[in-house]
């Protein structure tokens, strides 16, 4: 027999082990696992145009729901990842792709951080070298004085 306390404890335990409720539970049917996988990876890499920083898999926005439905339709039609990305790009622009294509307009996105890093390295090395050269630069006169001071 379960005591009252037992029941309460179990109730709490049940409440705790609920899986986090993901926004995207559409339960779309797929004929095979390959298509399901393609769908899941696409909705994970497409960005929700309404929500600034969520993929369409994780958003409950109306537009994310509509886009998931479109991705599902296109996956079932047998379209490739690139076809589906191109479809989204043509309508929503670079914003929709978390991994933007390499083009003149996106060069800064791809190489900006690397260039900043190289600039940072150059600046740091420059500063270190200057600091080192300051330490070694003692004139003969200073050397002489140093010797005198030390011998006192």
């Amino acid at each position: 027999m379960l005591t009252k306390v037992h029941r309460i404890v179990m109730l709490f335990a049940l409440a705790l082990c609920q899986a986090p409720a993901w926004a995207a539970i559409d339960a779309y049917p797929f004929p095979d696992d390959e298509m399901r996988q393609q769908y899941n990876s696409l909705i994970a890499e497409l960005r929700c145009p309404q929500c600034l920083n969520t993929n369409i898999a994780g958003s409950d926005a109306m537009i994310a729901k509509d886009l998931r439905r479109e991705v599902h339709r296109m996956v079932l039609e047998g379209q490739s990842d690139d076809d589906i990305r191109a479809f989204m790009l043509a309508r929503y622009g670079d914003f929709i792709l978390y991994k933007p294509q390499l083009r003149a307009g996106t060069l800064v996105l791809w190489f900006g951080p690397g260039i900043l890093f190289i600039i940072a390295l150059v600046v740091i090395f420059g500063m270190l070298r200057r600091r080192n050269s300051n330490v070694t630069a003692l004139s003969d006169q200073d050397q002489e004085r140093l010797k005198q001071l030390l011998s006192k």
Binding site: P49, Q50, I63, E70, Y92
Partner: peptide, 8 residues
């Protein structure tokens, strides 16, 4: 809406 790139 999707054809037009509408998001709201």
């Amino acid at each position: 809406g999707i054809e037009l790139g509408v998001y709201g």
